[in-house]
Design a protein around this nucleic acid. Structure first.
Length: 442
RNA sequence: GUCCGAAUAGUGUAGUGGCCUAUCAUGAAGCCCUGUCGAGGCUUCGACCCGGGUUCGAAUCCCGGUUCGGGCGCCA
């Protein structure tokens, strides 16, 4: 016996073609409107809503009585006849034969699902299961799905192999961020901050082009709208490429993702009231030095060569680029070697600059990448000069001693990609169960 | 970590020392209503974050705590 209770989603009912057909829908009670002589029950499923109409004179009294008593957000199935009806939302209504109550919801609900009363993000996250029943929230996660589908499609079509690297690691942080320590049997281990080291090792393995979409962990006590302690990273690494090659892959992928979402998530975009504009490629490239000039010319703060860009300066540059060139996405290239990770390749003729880049949205950084150092001794030296212990990197450095091709890559924050695409202001909005400095549950 | 702000029914809010027996919406319970689509009408229910203090009197002012929001910092 099967528990396949549903014959159709609400969106699969064609009023004309299916007029008179019997269907069974499964979902939640969105609303009951009892007008006395006529009663409407609105069923909601993932794809939309359907109106069940019960006319007093023509409905079995017990069926009507049970329908009137339905508690909002309870789970029901409705077996009914489809009736094309211009007066009904969606152009059809359902004349029920049977309404089965599968699971009654408690009352009152922890939050409103109809959009009449907005709930704060914190309230919504505490009751995420209920929040997901709202159109807007469902739309965000459908778009996130289409985003990742597009990323996989684009990268696969361009010769990238989907890989999975370990999230539990012994040591060897890339520096900078701190890691979450965990217990691995009787040893100390950590949750990995990024697949960086492993995807590089795969270049030595000859996989040539790889990508990974997976979780990354950062034990930083940041407290902003654009940081998470557990995030999703979209990473690539490609052999026989320099930074310009992978920038090209990145910008084309972003444009592809936007176009894909526009086409495949049109209803979700509409639910969010978004008219998505696909960014034009190539994205403009400005150098780090030019970025500094922009910041210093605007006078709100003064940066000197070698400084990293502050939040304020990112906004200054983003606003400037948007005003001058009318684009939201751009690259900042040629960063000082010393403020980029040890594996970024310096230019041969000016080693204080590296073959590195950040890909920016006008509101925040979306990606960073570089051509990597593929020369063992140079890499080891860079590790040492950044104050790290090369011994912890043995497993990584070993891969550079037996034939490592030149390579380049980048990582994009999936959440930031989605939030900038949708104009969502808080990164937690695009994560089902966000992990931030304070939130560990649900 | 730091600066600023907030905390009132299930949810979202009004409120600036007495007019608060606390506003409104939504919701819930009940009743009326045959085309609702944020249905409408009537009745009822439901709240001042915790601890101290000031005051004749505190939702309101002060102190501490907790939690939340925003800015910055930290952050390949």
């Amino acid at each position: 016996m099967s528990l396949n209770l549903r014959t159709h989603y609400t969106s699969q009912i064609d009023p004309e073609a299916m007029n008179g057909a019997e269907v069974t829908l499964a979902g939640w009670v969105y609303e009951v409107r009892d007008l006395g002589g006529i009663c409407f029950v609105v069923l909601r499923d993932r794809e939309g809503r359907a109106q069940v109409t019960l006319v007093k004179k023509r409905t079995d009294p017990e069926l009507l009585e049970n329908a009137r008593k339905l508690v909002r957000e309870s789970v029901i199935t409705v077996t009914a006849t489809v009736k094309a009806e211009a007066k009904a939302p969606g152009g059809y209504e359902l004349i029920p034969k049977e309404i089965r109550l599968l699971n009654e919801a408690e009352s009152p609900l922890p939050m409103d699902t109809t959009g009449k009363v907005e709930a704060e993000l914190d309230t919504r996250l505490d009751s995420r299961f209920m929040d997901l029943r709202r159109d807007r929230t469902t739309a965000i996660f459908k778009i996130r799905h289409e985003t990742l589908q597009a990323v996989r499609k684009y990268l696969s079509d361009n010769g990238f192999i989907d890989v999975t690297s370990p999230k539990v690691v012994a040591t060897a942080t890339e520096g900078g961020t701190s890691l979450f320590p965990i217990t691995y049997f009787d040893r100390e281990a950590f949750l990995n901050q990024s697949p960086q080291l492993f995807k590089q090792i795969l270049m030595s393995g000859g996989l040539d082009r790889v990508f990974e979409i997976g979780p990354i962990f950062r034990a930083e006590e940041h407290d902003t709208r654009k940081h998470l302690n557990e995030a999703t990273s979209i990473d690539i690494e490609a052999s026989f490429c320099d930074h310009f090659d992978v920038m090209s892959i990145l910008e084309n992928m972003i444009a592809y993702v936007y176009a894909h979402v526009k086409e495949h998530a049109a209803r979700s975009l509409e639910a969010l009231g978004i008219d998505l504009q696909v960014p034009a490629v190539p994205f403009p490239k400005i150098t780090y030095d030019e970025a500094l000039e922009i910041v210093n010319a605007h006078g709100e703060e003064t940066l000197k060569w070698g400084d990293d860009l502050s939040t304020l300066s990112e906004h200054t540059i983003g606003a400037h680029v948007f005003k001058e060139m009318g684009v939201s996405h751009y690259f900042i290239i040629d960063w000082p070697t010393d403020i980029k990770p040890f594996y970024a390749m310096p230019y041969e003729d000016r080693s204080e600059f590296s073959k590195s880049f950040d890909m920016m949205h006008r509101t925040m950084e979306l990606s960073s990448g570089a051509q990597r150092i593929h020369i063992h001794d140079m890499l080891k030296k860079r590790i040492e000069s950044q104050g790290l212990d090369p011994e912890g990197f043995d497993f990584y450095l070993k891969a550079f001693r037996y034939g490592m091709p030149p390579h380049a890559g980048w990582g994009v924050g999936c959440e930031r990609l989605v939030m900038t695409m949708l104009g969502v202001e808080n990164i937690r909005d695009v994560v089902l169960f966000p992990r931030d400095r304070r939130r560990l549950s649900p």
